[in-house]
Design a protein around this nucleic acid. Structure first.
Lengths: 345, 345
DNA sequence: TGAGCCAGTGGAATCGTTTACACGACTGAC
DNA sequence: GTCAGTCGTGTAAACGATTCCACTGGCTCA
């Protein structure tokens, strides 16, 4: 493969001039520039990004470590992250932690080894020594969706508190009183936060949240199924199950169907995170929607700010309730088609 | 950040010895090795992958360019690819082409610039000059799912021919005769192949496939919606619509619902590519399932074979029909729960 | 005893860029 | 006519690893 030396030879100039011409450095004569460009074209020369990175100590690459690629929420996040990064001239390497801390560490480590310019991460746990070290070492970093308390890193996320309140109000209005939740891992902020918000909202209606009604999930479908089975085995099963993410909702639906029960007649179901398929499930599922694309774009901008020496701020945007029919009675409102924000693809 | 020189100094040996110790080179004394390892530990040294790549001319990185990250099929593919690559000691950089040839080129170019060791690609079109050049230049490459005819690159894919025949037989058995298809882009092999297989299967039953019944989609939801609307506007609309991928099926479902029609009573729906949510849509959707994880793993192994100098073979595995209720009458068979293969996550 | 070999090591070249520095030619001001 | 400044360019030193080659000392074997 042709190197910069070949180009220099072909253009009859030095490698320094080639480099300058290619990088838009001002002091290159028009003539030299055209000769270089011509040589580049005929040789099909492309600069070796590896060598360049070594010299300049920047890779123009962002690392994104997400908790689960199979989760449409993170997929959408990843997509918007890549999109925004690309317009800012960065590539992104995605690592899938699969909700496993050791895998997360693996990815963080290899990303760091590759000298990515910055790290976007949605931590699976409370923070390994490795990650804490990286923060201390000054690696530009931004947390997205989830974060690690007590660590000084900007956080870009959606606040579901209000939406959860709205959900509980909605459920209460439909006459439901026995409400259960399938929680995410307590080690994650989204895991504990959603339960807290739920409990808090219930309290306002004087409804308790007994232990039997808080199942421990791991944000994956299987756990949703398992927890739901436990709920259904209860002497007094809940009237509505609220899954803290969409995959656990899928599992819950599996479990409910496997018993031959019907939603919402026999039991209601709601989920955190809205996805396109929720419109077409039987019945359409009431969910709390995050402005995912916006989160991804904002997070990238924050990270790039940090990388390029500008101050980066934390950002919190509200999530909102999308009431459908999975908790009983036709929703008071808008029958919504395939959500508009997705069609921007 | 500590470099190999610091380690050498701390261990009282030369950088050469450090490098040898770290790379398991045989001729390093046990004593030197332990001193090096100790220094590495205390300094928290990690080799700079960029420098290493420059010198060794290999990045231990694979590029994966897929057509659409939002498509669960490709998401699952990406996941299995990463998984297998990781066990083989490679990282993977994912590029999302979003079904746009110019974006695909962008990703191929930046991946090549980064000197990835090999490229796994599911081409969006018939092959840009860039890609053809890369093949000619000897870049290790493997096509997955889709391929470019006439190019000498191993292909790992599922053959849906038999499954499409099974589908048509299934539909015919249910009494349907007016069958339409939402095709993918003709520039993709999967786009044209699925139509061909469909047409061929119909022919066996003496059923024609008029132009009015073959809509042109682009593998994304919007096109499925649009084409389906056209179908429904026909004087004699089809009895069943077969979408060539799951996103177009989603769009079709949107369009059908928007007219207040019901599946399967008013119109049947089937899709290529099976996803977990198809079990829970209203009604559950009949689909053709590919062994996605297996495809991803096989493709990676083929690519790594090619990279490491072993011969790489093309592999074709069969897809299979999963009959559910979206085309009429309860499927003759197995009510299937959440598919087992997914739970291996 | 001496030649040959081997294990272990260090010095230095190398990978393909970017960029600090030096240099010559020219311009314009005094 | 000299001096300072500018412009365009080239030479060479980085960047941080791997690896070729040469060297030393100890050993074996004839």
């Amino acid at each position: 493969m042709a190197g910069i030396k070949d180009v220099a030879a072909a253009a009859g100039v030095s490698v320094a001039t080639v480099s300058r011409a290619l990088n838009g450095h001002p002091s290159v004569s028009a003539e030299a520039r055209t000769r270089v460009l011509a040589a580049v074209r005929t040789l099909g020369y492309r600069p070796n990004a590896v060598a360049r990175s070594l010299r300049t100590d920047q890779t123009r690459t962002l690392g994104l470590v997400i908790s689960d690629v199979l989760n449409p929420y993170f997929t959408e996040l990843a997509r918007s992250v890549e999109e925004e990064a690309r317009t800012l001239g960065y590539s992104v390497i995605i690592g899938n932690a699969d909700e496993r801390p050791e895998l997360q560490d693996h990815h963080v480590r290899t990303l760091l080894d590759r000298r990515i310019d910055g790290l976007l991460i949605s931590p699976t746990d409370g923070g390994s020594p490795l990650m804490l070290d990286a923060v201390r070492a000054g690696t530009p970093m931004v947390f997205v969706d989830r974060w690690i308390p007590g660590v000084d890193v900007p956080v870009v996320r959606a606040d579901g508190r209000t939406a959860v309140h709205d959900l509980v109000a909605h459920l209460h209005g439909l006459g439901h009183r026995r409400l259960a939740i399938i929680a995410g891992p307590a080690a994650t902020t989204t895991g504990s936060e959603r339960v807290d918000a739920f409990r808090e909202a219930l309290a306002e209606y004087g409804i308790p949240l007994p232990d039997a009604y808080t199942g421990q999930g791991d944000f994956k479908a299987d756990s949703g199924r398992r927890v739901t089975e436990d709920f259904l085995d209860l002497a007094e099963p809940p009237e509505v199950v609220f899954a803290a993410d969409n995959l656990m909702a899928l599992g819950a639906l599996d479990a409910i169907r496997a018993r031959g029960l019907r939603v919402p007649e026999d039991i209601g179901l709601a989920a955190f995170d809205d996805i396109a398929w929720f419109v077409h499930t039987d019945p359409p599922i009431t969910a709390i929607a995050q402005p995912t694309g916006q989160l991804g774009r904002t997070a990238v901008r924050a990270l790039v700010d940090r990388i390029e020496g500008r101050p980066a701020r934390s950002v919190t945007v509200p999530a909102r309730l999308v009431a459908r029919r999975s908790c009983g009675e036709p929703a008071h409102a808008h029958r919504e088609p395939y959500p508009a924000r997705r069609s921007r693809s």
